[in-house]
Computed example of a mutant assay.
Amino acid sequence: MVTELTPKRVTRRRVRTRANLLSAAFAVFAAKGYGRVSIEEVCEAAGYSRGAFYSNFDSLDELFFALYQERAELIADQVSGAFALDGPDLDVPAAVDRVTDVLLLDLDWLLVKTDFLVHAARNPAVAQSLLDHRARLREAIADRLARAAGRFELPTVLSHVDSAAHAVIAAYDGVTTQLLLDKDVEHARVWLKQLLTALLTDGRRTPE
């Protein structure tokens, strides 16, 4: 009986250790900047040894990608939920309202993401990995839009869901860049809502 349960206890502990490392790294990255943090500082913040770190991650880059993937999946799920409506028609402005009301607009995350983007821009291998992650996010959004495409008509300029997904991500990137400077989350949500509604409806309807 003990032998059967031991692997489960180890698995739970490993999952908990990984989650604690991710949480600690996020806090340290946000406070100091991605490029100014060492593995030792992450371990100290999490209360673990370097051995615990390397049993879960090969590098800080790999740890960051794990953080990025969590948030990429969250954003994709938020988009999916906004467009998951029953009935023959899709009210795009209403769907945009829902997604912008809950979409991740976290200043600490935006600081970390921007730091890492600069780091990746100077390291081709890291840049390619980040491009791969962004491509998966874009594909997830395109998939959600494709499922809803039968219930609304995309503007002519965005007649393909891939183009629409690129536009959605570009709008999100632009709004969050402004948000980093003015720290006005509510204004960012309003502006993102206006942009997405205009993009996905060709300006035919605007949010109130």
Rank of each mutant, 00 (worst) to 15 (best):
Lys8Met: 14
Arg136Ile: 03
Arg205Gln: 03
Glu139Tyr: 12
Ala140Leu: 04
Pro88Arg: 08
Ala120Gln: 10
Arg13Pro: 06
Arg50Glu: 13
Gln194Pro: 03
Thr11Arg: 06
Val175Phe: 09
Leu181Ala: 07
Ala30Gly: 07
Leu131Lys: 15
Val15Thr: 14
Ala72Leu: 03
Gln78Cys: 12
Arg205Asp: 05
Tyr172Thr: 03
Ser159Lys: 07
Ala135Glu: 05
Ala66Ser: 11
Arg204Leu: 05
Leu85Asp: 15
Ala82Gly: 02
Val10Gln: 07
Gln128Ser: 12
Leu5Cys: 13
Leu60Trp: 00
Ala24Arg: 04
Ala82Thr: 06
Asp89Glu: 09
Ile141Gly: 01
Pro207Trp: 07
Asp162Pro: 01
Phe29Asn: 02
Ala46Tyr: 02
Arg205Glu: 03
Arg14Lys: 05
His133Cys: 11
Asp97Glu: 14
His187Gly: 15
Gly81Asp: 03
Arg147Met: 09
Phe29Leu: 03
Glu153Gln: 09
Ser163Pro: 00
Phe29Gly: 00
Leu74Arg: 10
Glu41Ala: 03
Glu70Thr: 11
Ser59Phe: 12
Leu181Ile: 13
Arg189Met: 02
Ala148Asn: 01
Asp91Met: 06
Ile75Phe: 06
Asp182His: 07
Val168Leu: 15
Arg144Asp: 15
Leu180Thr: 06
Thr201Gln: 13
Leu195Trp: 12
Val79Gln: 03
Val42Gln: 03
Val28Arg: 00
Ala142Lys: 15
Ala125Ile: 15
Ala66His: 13
Arg204Phe: 08
Ala45Pro: 02
Glu41Cys: 14
Val37Gly: 08
Val15Glu: 08
Ala127Glu: 14
Ala94Trp: 06
Ala171Arg: 04
Leu67His: 03
Val37Gln: 05
Ala84Thr: 09
Met1Ser: 05
Val157Ile: 15
Ile169Gln: 01
Phe26Cys: 01
Ala149Pro: 03
Arg16Gly: 07
Ser55Val: 08
Leu105Met: 15
Gly203Glu: 04
Ala198Ser: 15
Ala76Trp: 09
Arg144Pro: 05
Asn56Ala: 10
Ser129Ile: 05
Arg18Phe: 14
Gly87Cys: 15
Thr3Asp: 08
Gly203Arg: 00
Arg12Ser: 15
Ala127Pro: 01
Ala30Glu: 01
Arg50Gln: 09
His187Cys: 10
Glu44Val: 13
Val157Lys: 14
Glu40Phe: 10
Leu107Ala: 10
Pro93Arg: 08
Thr197Pro: 00
Leu111Ser: 10
Ala170Ile: 12
Ala188Thr: 02
Leu137Ser: 05
Val2Leu: 06
Ile141Ala: 04
Arg98His: 12
Thr6Leu: 07
Ala95Met: 02
Tyr48Phe: 06
Leu103Glu: 03
His119Phe: 08
Leu67Gly: 01
Ala24Asn: 09
Asp182Arg: 13
Val118Ser: 12
Ala188Pro: 12
Pro124Leu: 05
Lys183His: 12
Glu153His: 04
Leu154Met: 06
Lys8Tyr: 11
Gln128Ile: 12
Leu60Arg: 06
Asn123Trp: 08
Leu145Glu: 01
Arg134Phe: 06
Tyr34Leu: 01
Thr3Tyr: 11
Ala171Val: 01
Ala66Lys: 11
Glu40Pro: 00
Lys183Ser: 10
Ala167Asn: 00
Tyr172Cys: 01
